[in-house]
Amino acid sequence: MLAALSSALFLTLMLVGFYTYARNHTRGAFDFGYTFENESYFNGLTFTVYSFYFGFLLVLPIFVATEGSAQIAGETSDRTLGLLLIRPITKSRLFFTKVAVSAGYAVCLAGGFLVLSLGVGLFAVGWGDLDLYPGVLQMTDRHQHLSQSQALLRFALIWPAASLGLWTTLAFAFLLSAWMKSAVNAAAVSISLYLVMHVVSGVHFFEELRPILFTSYLAYWRGLLQEDVPWTQVGRDAAKLLGFAFVFLALAHRRFRLREEL
């Protein structure tokens, strides 16, 4: 519920930002004559790309990290974990049940946010084809043009791809959740570390560090917005993200299995 409300608020802010940006940059108010993005290029699909990109990197991870943290640390601090452990269920089964439930939540979150963005974009901003240019979002190396139906199909592919990215963030939150006794601390640390890694991944003087941070690959689904999808690259990044996720889950499982429930 909170996630849905926050997503709606975020999309409203994006909508306001989108319109003010378009107005300022296309009506001569801006003295930079050749900076050029106009209203015909901005449409509902462009809006969806922008809002989903920022939402995926900055809003959804917060909810996913909170969910992941609540699963073990939350039950530990509420002491309800003890209620579960006095039942004939192994810790492994309990752990993977929680992972599965949270992974489902991440899929719903990504799908819901995407549908909401598309809905707001297409009905509030407008229909049309999707044109992407190289830019600060670094969506593409060159101009990409996708027809509306092509773009909608690509968004359908982005849903599972983005969900996979969220799973890695989720697995990271699980790792911290298995180590910490308080859900609030686990969520705060997960979100803080995620944001630090996200910034480090995006700043060029950390380029030696980038490859070992999972946050460097999270927006790999941008490749699905190319006219010719670079499947090898998309596959490589998806493999890296899943690899990171499994490492986090293995460590989280070990910690959870061996720790004492004091």
Binding site: K91, S92, P211, P230, T232, Q233, G235, R236, D237, A238, A239, K240, L241, L242, G243, F244, A245, F246, V247, L249, A250, H253, R254, R257, L258
Partner: peptide, 25 residues
């Protein structure tokens, strides 16, 4: 439990080798 963890790590190794090992496009 140890077997599960080793399995997860083996899977992660395969994926990371695939992800990092294949030539950059």
């Amino acid at each position: 439990g140890t077997l599960i963890e080793l399995g997860l790590l083996a899977l992660a190794s395969i994926l990371l080798v695939l992800g990092f090992g294949l030539p950059e496009s």
